[in-house]
Simulated assay, not measured.
Amino acid sequence: MGRNLQSGDRLRPVDLARGHGLSTQAVRNYEEAGILPAAERTPHGYRTYARLHAAALRAFLALVPGHGRATATAVMQAVNRGADEEAFRLVDESHAQLLGDRQTLRAVEDALRDLAPTAAAGRDGAVVAGRGGMFIGPLAEELGIRPATLRAWERAGLVRPRRDPLTGYRVYDEADVRDVRLAHQLRRGGHLLEQIAPLIAQVRAAGGLEPLEAALHDWHGRLAARGRAMLAGAAELEAYLRARG
């Protein structure tokens, strides 16, 4: 490792920092965190860096957008202590998470596509509540599930029906029925309740399914950008591994 550190032009901390738009303190912090290999010291105790440190810094900064700062830090720490397999495992986990996010997005889009037009009265003009909406029994029957399932979804925060002031029965309005149908589709796709709840919340925040299309388009864009960032990070990490030897 010593020969690698000495190879190439010597760099002062300020040279390494300016080349990447950082402060010299940030460079020192990265070294102390194990993101950069240890610097050589002059006889007077000043840090000196080499092209290997620049390659490490480029790798770290390229890994952050795709993997996040914590994972990028852990990857560089593993590489710098010679635990390459650990670094590769961390990278693989990030790719697996990205794939999972893509599958979730596809499941949401499939669920939205498969949703039948929601009617407050149900398919057969089933029993409805006074101000418009469905009671739990007819809604459960329409979806082919048990009322207990709908009550479990309510406890999980997937749906929030109001209560009829006279009977105390749950009343599902049009938005509630939409959320129940979406939850039903996602459950059929194998998603857990804790995975579905934030997706239902996004539908509510968007104001319905149609406004959600813009959010889904943005979601596609973020995943694509993350995928490209991972490719860029992999290229710089490989360059650092080659420079390290």
Rank of each mutant, 00 (worst) to 15 (best):
R187G: 02
E238R: 11
V108H: 15
E40C: 04
M134E: 04
D218T: 11
R102N: 08
A50E: 06
A55D: 12
L182A: 05
P37W: 04
L61H: 14
R28F: 06
Q202N: 05
P165C: 02
A201N: 03
E109G: 05
D92F: 11
A126P: 01
V64P: 00
R89G: 09
N80S: 11
I200H: 05
L52D: 10
G21D: 05
R58W: 01
E238F: 02
P117D: 02
G190I: 00
H53K: 05
M1E: 06
P165H: 06
A229P: 02
R226E: 13
A87L: 05
A17L: 07
D9A: 13
Q195M: 04
V64R: 10
S94M: 01
R58I: 07
R12I: 05
A206W: 08
V79K: 06
V14A: 12
N80Y: 01
L209I: 01
W153L: 00
R160L: 12
H20Q: 09
G68K: 14
E86H: 10
Q103W: 12
D9Y: 14
G2P: 04
A26N: 08
R244V: 00
M76L: 12
A152M: 00
G168L: 05
S94H: 07
A239K: 14
Y49I: 10
L192T: 08
R131C: 09
H67R: 15
A224K: 05
R89H: 07
L150V: 08
G82W: 10
L105V: 06
L52G: 03
L166R: 13
T104L: 13
E31H: 04
D92G: 12
W153P: 00
L143V: 08
L98Q: 10
A33T: 07
Q202W: 01
A206K: 07
I145Q: 13
A148N: 08
L99A: 15
H67N: 15
A111W: 08
L52W: 02
P65N: 15
A126K: 01
A224F: 12
G233L: 08
A78M: 06
I145W: 14
R242I: 13
L115M: 15
V180F: 13
G68L: 03
G137M: 06
N80E: 10
A111L: 06
R162Y: 01
I196C: 02
R155A: 15
R12M: 02
W153C: 02
A183R: 01
G245M: 06
M230Y: 06
A229R: 00
A156G: 03
V127F: 12
L231I: 03
G133F: 03
P138W: 07
R187T: 07
A70C: 07
M76V: 06
Q77N: 11
D101K: 00
